[in-house]
Design a protein around this nucleic acid. Structure first.
Lengths: 131, 131
DNA sequence: ATATATAGGTACCCCATGGATAGTGACTGC
DNA sequence: GCAGTCACTATCCATGGGGTACCTATATAT
């Protein structure tokens, strides 16, 4: 799990190796909810309910789970205001903002190339049916 | 599922909306095996077994499944040579290469920032124990 | 002749994880 | 006094990721 998984690579880490720390980081990032929650936090600090409304279809369980993972890994900061009804705000850390720029590019790519992929899927289905 | 999920966004797609095509694209990309297989194909065309050795820990089932999804979505091309023992080669399409550059940045990020995240996790655990 | 290795997969089973639904506490507004 | 707000937690169920075994057809080794 330490950096000695690939001493010859630029940063001493190699995500292709299953027990390398960078592999587990990739595992954490490989979630559509991580993309979307980080994307929703990119413009600035947000409350729980705002995130839930922005990320359509996320359940409270998955939103909480995703936020806790991001907090644990130092990408998100959580601030609780002891008022009633409760008020909790989330914001990206420096590390989180750094990552958000990259994840955002992927999100934009998926929006840009959605038609290409839809066409590819259609062609693939077509080929399946006609032989 | 069509582009009318967000007519006002730059490309007519919005990944935050659950039934938008770009959301399903993000869903497809949100897999560590997609990252690693695309990363392994980035330098050039590769055989099945080469991919299996490069992506440490991937099972034949997941490798096949991942490659089929990438092929279906037009990111990877598959070429079969009818010889014995069988020979099958995979390579990125133009669309796949385009994506690979982005995914590669994420993989590099995860290698660069693995120590930061390890430290954050350690601090998080520490806080749990001491209160 | 028999055993083993290769290459690129399938077939099968199991359990962890994701997803859906319901509930909770402490107030405020009607 | 009843519904609504807010940020969750608890519980159940189904999907799908993951592991193992197996397949075909040949070349090589014993």
């Amino acid at each position: 799990m330490d950096s000695d998984c690939a001493p010859d690579t630029p940063f001493g880490y190699d995500a292709f190796r299953r027990h390398c720390m960078s592999h587990t980081v990739l595992e954490m990032l490989a979630s559509k909810w991580v993309y979307l929650v980080v994307g929703a936090l990119k413009p600035g600090r947000r409350r729980y309910g705002e995130l839930q409304r922005k990320v359509e279809g996320i359940t409270p369980k998955m939103l909480t789970q995703t936020l806790r993972v991001l907090e644990r890994d130092g990408l998100v900061r959580r601030e609780i205001f002891p008022v009633i009804p409760p008020r909790v705000e989330y914001e990206l850390t420096d590390l989180g903002r750094n990552l958000a720029d990259l994840l955002n590019q992927i999100r934009v790519w998926s929006e840009q190339h959605a038609p290409d992929i839809r066409d590819a899927r259609a062609r693939s289905l077509e080929g399946e049916l006609t032989g």
